[in-house]
């Protein structure tokens, strides 16, 4: 008899891929349920306890302070989205050139807002704005939000550019199109889904942001997250449930749109 390295030579064969332990499945279901439980609870509570189903929604959307903060959020979101989409698209187009002086430095600069502690970004802007003697308000928040949104827009569009055939635009110029025309008729339509999903992401990021807004907003420029934050310290009201769930609902709608665009 030769020596076998097997401790137990007669184990049943394992079928790869076929093994999904029920305990693991149950665990995963539990974790996912726990992740969603608060959101579900919020949605249920936002419809309950009033004389009509949408009672708290009507109440929430007629609260002038809540409404004001909602408008502030939308205004800031739109403002920072426009600036960051333009800047980010241009930056991504610039980065098509594979090598140029300062490329590595510029790329690190783009990644910096992703790794910088958010609190530091917020307070450094606060320090800078007060150094410039700028009044804090909607405008300062737009500037702050744009600073982090540009990075995300650039990275999303860049990912799309990397998957694109650079020869297409060249083919257009070979066929006699001016560079300007080649860009607008060939490259830009191909980039458009990425530009839109970058813009939607930028709006979502701005709409969601708490910490940077906390540092850079002034009196009367409360955004919705700031408003909810300060209301939370005085307790919970059904109107807050309603407005919170509306926000979640619209965010999810945006996310679905972004994912759809990404798939194309």
């Amino acid at each position: 008899m030769f020596k076998t390295p097997f401790k137990t030579p007669l184990k049943p064969p394992r079928i790869p891929g076929k093994k999904r332990r029920p305990s693991l499945v149950a665990y995963t279901t539990f974790i996912l349920a726990a992740l969603y439980l608060p959101l579900v609870a919020l949605s249920v509570l936002s419809f309950r306890g009033g004389p009509t189903l949408f009672h708290w929604y009507v109440r929430a959307f007629s609260d002038p302070q809540l409404l004001q903060s909602l408008w502030n959020s939308i205004f800031i979101g739109v403002g920072s989205t426009i600036i960051s989409t333009v800047l980010g698209t241009m930056a991504a187009l610039g980065l098509r050139r594979p090598r140029f002086p300062g490329r590595v430095a510029f790329e690190s600069l783009i990644n910096l807002p992703l790794v910088l502690p958010e609190i530091v970004m917020g307070l450094s802007l606060l320090v800078w704005f007060s150094f410039l003697k700028m009044t804090l308000g909607l405008f300062s928040v737009i500037l702050a939000h744009t600073t982090f949104s540009v990075s995300y827009v650039t990275l999303i569009i860049l990912a799309r550019i990397k998957g694109m055939d650079p020869l297409l635009e060249e083919a257009a110029s070979d066929l006699g199109a001016t560079p300007w025309r080649a860009f607008w008729t060939v490259t830009f339509p191909l980039l458009l889904p990425a530009v839109i999903s970058g813009a939607l992401l930028s709006f979502t990021l701005s709409f969601d942001d708490f910490l940077i807004t906390f540092f850079t907003s002034g009196v009367g420029s409360d955004t919705l997250p700031i408003r909810i934050y300060s209301m939370m310290r005085f307790g919970v009201t059904p109107e807050m449930n309603a407005i919170s769930f509306s926000v979640i609902f619209f965010t999810l709608l945006t996310v679905v749109m972004v994912f759809r665009l990404r798939r194309e």
Binding site: L87, A91, L93, L95, P101, L109, W128, T147, T154
Partner: peptide
């Protein structure tokens, strides 16, 4: 497209933004 080695002008707006606000 790949031959050009100059820093593209398209990155200057965001570069300026990052320098000024970051």
């Amino acid at each position: 497209f790949t031959k050009q080695q100059k820093t593209p002008a398209f990155i200057f707006p965001s570069l300026g933004w990052f320098i000024f606000f970051l």
